[in-house]
Amino acid sequence: MTTTQDQSSTNSGAASSEAAEKRTVRFRIQRCLGPNKPAHWEAFDVPILAGEGANVISCLQYIARRPITADGKETDPVVWDSGCLEEVCGACTMIVNGQVRQSCSCLIDNEAPNDGDVISLQPMSKFPVVRDLWVDRQRMFHNLKRAHAWTPIDGLHDRGAGPQETAKNQETRYIFSTCMTCGCCLEACPQFLLVDEPAKWDESFVGANTIGQVRLFNLHPTAKEEAGERLEVLMGPGGVSDCGNAQNCVKVCPKEIPLTEGIAAMGRATTVKAVKQFFTGE
C-alpha cells in the first residue's frame, strides 16, 4: 500500500512537470458471453494520461466506446457492473490482477504506472457470471434473508424513539453496518465456493459478511429478539462452524470491517447457545 502510494506521488510529480505524460496500458479481460459459456481472454490497449485520475472504470468506458482489441480485431463491448463509483455501493467488485476489489477505487496510476504495464480483469469466481465481468450476487442477498438480517419493528407508525444505546455499542454496530454486500470477503474465502443451484444455497456456507450481519443485529436491543433464530442458522449446515479461519475476509474487506472478530463472537454465541440448549432443552 505505502509503496504504491510513494510511487504514485513521484509519478504525478514527474507528470505535472513534464505536462500530461501519455502512456499505454494493456487490459487483459476475461470474457464470457453468458452463463455456462466458455471464457476467453481479450486484450485492449488504453491510452492513459498520467494524473488525470483514470481508474479501471474509466478505462472500461474507453473500451466500451471503442471495442477493438489490441490486435485490431473488432469485438463486442465489455459488460460490467457498477454503481456509485465511490466504493460505497459494492457493485463494481471484480478481480484486478488476481485480487478481488472494487474496480472504481483501482487507480491506473497506482496499478500500472509504466508504459506497457498490464492489468488483468476477471469476474468474481464465486458467483455465476452473467456476462463478461458482471456476476450475479443474488446469493448474498438470499443469505441476508436466511440470517433474519433486519430489526423486527412493530410497524411504521410513530411509537417514539428507539431504545437508548451506549456509544460503545453503536460504534461496534456501525462498523458492521457499513458492509456493502460487495462479496470481497467471499471471493477471497477458501470455504465459500460457487454454488450455481439456488436450492443448495441454504446448505452452503454463508460467509463472513452474513456472519457479520448476525453480529450486527444481535447487538441491537430490538433486533436481539430474533437472535435465537439467527444463531440457529449459524449452527446449521453452512453456518459459522464452516469457517476455516483463513482470515482472508478481514484482509480484503474494503471497509476494514473486523469480520474475524464477528466470526469469533458468533463462535462464542453459538457455544453458549449450545450449552444452554443442552442443559435447559430450549
Binding site: 430489526t151 419493528i153 411504521l156 410513530d158 411509537r159 417514539g160 424513539a161 428507539g162 456509544a167 453503536q170 454496530r173 456501525y174 453496518s177 443485529f217 441491537h220 430490538t222 433486533a223
Partner: peptide, 11 residues
C-alpha cells in the same frame, strides 16, 4: 424516531 427503531446506528 422510526429510523432509530429500525436500528440505524445513529451516533
Amino acid at each position: 424516531d422510526l429510523l432509530d427503531r429500525m436500528g440505524v446506528p445513529f451516533n
